[in-house]
Design a protein around this nucleic acid. Sequence first.
DNA 1: AATACATATGAATAGTTGTTCATATGTTAA
DNA 2: TTAACATATGAACAACTATTCATATGTATT
Lengths: 108, 108
Amino acid sequence: MKRCDEGANLEIMTHEDAIELSEFYKMVGDSNRIRLLYLLIDKEICVHHLAEQLGMSQSAVSHQLRLLRQQRLVKYTKDGKKIYYSLDDEHVKTILNIGLEHLKHREE
Amino acid sequence: MKRCDEGANLEIMTHEDAIELSEFYKMVGDSNRIRLLYLLIDKEICVHHLAEQLGMSQSAVSHQLRLLRQQRLVKYTKDGKKIYYSLDDEHVKTILNIGLEHLKHREE
DNA sequence: AATACATATGAATAGTTGTTCATATGTTAA
DNA sequence: TTAACATATGAACAACTATTCATATGTATT
């Protein structure tokens, strides 16, 4: 493998892109959000039920959903009083699975 | 898609696994660590040079490397006074690329 | 219109994280 | 063995994050 210890600039991505990427990854950097996202794989679930399943308050779940919405990891559809959330991006599912693979690697 | 709003427990992963996974993902949830990891794709780089490239203090880089080591995202080899770091896991590379894909999705 | 239900949001707070500064450890060369 | 270089680490602090609590908004039912 190439070894570098001085000289030319190696950086291939802008600081701005790094910040944007990190904001996306932060979303899967919290265990409650991870559990929430796993619940949403192949299903849509309303807020109340998410809170119940996760053992979190309605308010806490709602705050987290706002973050996940902002980063476009989840989307929703309304149905009367209820709002059903689901994953917004296949990449999310892929990333969750790769994380599990990495855990296996760590256990070796 | 299946719609769920009450009843059976849907959870497929333990809380412990979620915490462990989130600790792994936290590592890519910081822009400086992301830039650092990108620098290490296909290269090994010593601490001093990493600090220089990232515009960070030696101490700050060293602290971050400790975290990345603990979570097994990077490994190192010593060579005299210098210590060369490199990625410890193909999954890390994959995850970084998927993140970029997701950014494209967001820009639509 | 009034009530109950479902979700969202702002403010406050406790806990976490990343950096700096000072210093320690380890290695090489003189 | 002293000096210079390379890296690591502990403590302190500022910035950020996740939750709670109180309340607001929106929808359906009576």
